[in-house]
């Protein structure tokens, strides 16, 4: 029982990262119908920006500012900066390819990702960095289940972010424009909503979210390396599509599902078979729910 409860906590933490990162994927996928294969590397760049800002702020203000204030400052500044990375990716890799086959844009995304990775390696060298702890880690023992305050923070912060995004999309004018765009991105521009505003915004929000996920990731797994985004990115891609097109909720749930599968499979089966069994489960899910969880029906005209 202890193991079970402990693993629920573990899976919630791990799933939070998949959920938040896959939301960024899902938004681009929903609004523009494009795969954003650079997203994993946007997450990586966001984490490194967060790392830089955190190191800087800790050096400057740690004497007279409480830790949580620095933490919030780091998040805000990093989100702001990282959103420009998202806009940059959109401008370079996706805007020139509007109207081109969808897969071509996916390839540019992939290539921008490789440039980010290599660029990082060239600029910062092969050394791995350790993300400075912004919050003193405290471990609580609740009836044999170990929970750290960082874990709680990650789970809560991810939920808060998702809820805020949900509100933004449902309640604001911008959110409405995005929803309209995902409904029909050919007709909506004729109604006076510029795709050149909405598309960068989508990327910026996605990148902002990814960078916050990166900072939280840095708190939980403080080893940074240039290739850290690859596997997370591809798995978030699985979650985003599993969730269904244009469904933020779906992507988030699929992210948590992926986290739960990856945590619970090693608990029940020998852990060497983790990937084999975990992805077989996904295959089975897709066989029986071929449209994901919340997705709208795909148009048959959908072309790559």
């Amino acid at each position: 029982m202890d193991i079970f409860l402990q693993n629920i906590i573990n899976a919630l933490q791990w799933g939070s990262f998949y959920a938040v990162v896959s939301i960024g994927y899902s938004m681009v996928y929903g609004v523009l119908m494009l795969f954003n294969f650079a997203h994993g590397d946007i997450f990586m760049v966001g984490t490194y920006i967060g790392f830089g800002i955190a190191t800087l702020l800790l050096a400057l203000f740690s004497a007279f500012m409480p830790g949580w204030m620095i933490f919030i400052l780091v998040i805000l500044i990093t989100m702001f900066l990282a959103s420009f990375v998202g806009v940059f990716v959109e401008m370079v890799g996706y805007r020139p390819l509007r109207g081109a086959p969808r897969a071509s844009a996916a390839i540019t995304g992939l290539m921008i990702g490789i440039i980010f990775e290599t660029g990082n390696l060239i600029i910062l060298g092969a050394q791995r960095f350790s993300f400075p702890p912004l919050i003193e880690s405290v471990t609580y023992n609740i009836g044999g289940i170990y929970v750290t305050n960082v874990k709680v923070l990650i789970i809560v912060a991810s939920l808060v972010m998702m809820f805020a995004l949900h509100l933004f999309i449902k309640k604001t004018k911008w959110g409405m424009a995005m929803r309209a765009m995902s409904y029909d991105f050919q007709a909506v521009p004729l109604m006076g909503v510029s795709i050149n505003v909405i598309a960068p915004m989508t990327f910026a929000i996605g990148a902002g979210l990814a960078s916050v996920a990166g900072i939280l990731y840095g708190q939980a797994y403080p080893v940074l390396d240039p290739y850290m985004g690859i596997s997370l990115g591809w798995k978030a891609f699985v979650a985003a599509i599993l969730g269904g097109r244009g469904s933020i909720m779906g992507a988030a749930l699929a992210g948590y599902l992926l986290g739960f599968i990856e945590m619970f499979v090693p608990m029940i089966f020998p852990s060497t078979f983790r990937d084999l069994i975990a992805y077989s489960i996904i295959l089975v899910i897709l066989t029986f729910r071929p449209r994901g969880f919340f997705g709208m029906a795909h148009s048959t005209q959908l072309r790559l």
């Binding site: 202890d2 693993n7 573990n10 060497t272």
Partner: peptide, 20 residues
């Protein structure tokens, strides 16, 4: 005797098993 895959960063499930 637990394992994970290259590039994994979360080992909590395996570690929970080990600790228990």
């Amino acid at each position: 005797y637990e394992s994970f895959t290259t590039k994994d960063t979360d080992f909590s499930s395996q570690l929970t098993k080990i600790i228990n």
